[in-house]
Amino acid sequence: MSVAAPPAPVAVIVPTLRRPDSLTRALESLFAQTGVADRLAEIVVVDNDPAGSAAATVEAVRARSPWPLVYCHAPVPGVATARNTGLLATAAPLIAFLDDDEAADPDWLAALLAAQTETAADVVFGPIRGRAPDAADWLKPYLEDFFGRNGPVRTGLIDQPYGCGNSLMLRRTALPGPAPFDPAADQAGGEDDALFAALAARGGRFGWAAGARVDEFAPPHRATLTYALARAFAYGQGPSQTAASRRDWPAVVRWMVIGAVQMMVWTCAAVPYLIVRSPRRAWALDRAARGLGKLFWMKGLEPHFYGASELARLDATASA
Rank of each mutant, 00 (worst) to 15 (best):
M1W: 04
S2F: 07
S2R: 08
V3W: 08
P7T: 04
P9A: 04
V10F: 01
A11I: 08
A11G: 06
V14Q: 04
P15N: 05
T16Q: 14
P20C: 08
S22H: 08
D38K: 02
D38P: 01
L40R: 08
L40T: 08
D49T: 09
D49E: 12
P50E: 12
T57M: 01
T57K: 04
R62K: 07
R62T: 05
R64E: 08
P66Y: 15
P66W: 13
P66A: 14
V70I: 13
V70G: 08
H73N: 10
H73C: 10
H73F: 10
A74Y: 07
P77W: 03
P77V: 02
G78T: 01
G78D: 01
A80R: 07
T81N: 02
T81I: 01
A82S: 06
L87N: 05
A89L: 08
T90S: 12
T90E: 07
A96N: 01
F97A: 01
D99F: 00
L109S: 06
A110R: 11
A111D: 01
Q116N: 04
V123Q: 00
V123H: 00
V124R: 00
R129V: 02
R129K: 04
G130T: 01
R131W: 01
A132W: 02
P133H: 07
P133Q: 09
P141I: 07
P141Q: 12
P141E: 10
R149S: 05
V153G: 07
T155Q: 02
T155N: 05
G156L: 02
I158E: 04
Q160F: 11
Q160G: 06
G163S: 14
G163Y: 14
G165E: 05
S167R: 05
R172N: 02
A174R: 00
L175V: 03
P176F: 00
P176L: 01
P176S: 04
P178K: 03
F181W: 14
L195S: 10
G204P: 02
R205Q: 00
A212Q: 03
F217W: 07
P219D: 13
P220R: 11
A223K: 04
Y227E: 15
A232N: 15
F233G: 11
A244H: 14
A244G: 13
R246D: 13
R247L: 15
R247Y: 11
R247H: 15
W249H: 09
W249T: 12
R254H: 09
G259E: 03
G259A: 02
V261L: 07
Q262R: 15
V265H: 05
V265T: 06
W266C: 10
T267F: 07
C268L: 06
A269S: 02
A269M: 02
A270E: 07
L274D: 08
L274R: 13
L274H: 07
I275M: 11
A282H: 13
A282Q: 15
A284R: 13
A288Q: 12
G293D: 10
G293V: 06
W297H: 15
M298G: 13
E302M: 09
P303W: 07
Y306K: 04
G307P: 05
G307C: 01
G307T: 01
L314P: 09
L314Q: 15
L314H: 10
D315N: 13
T317H: 14
T317E: 15
A318G: 14
S319V: 12
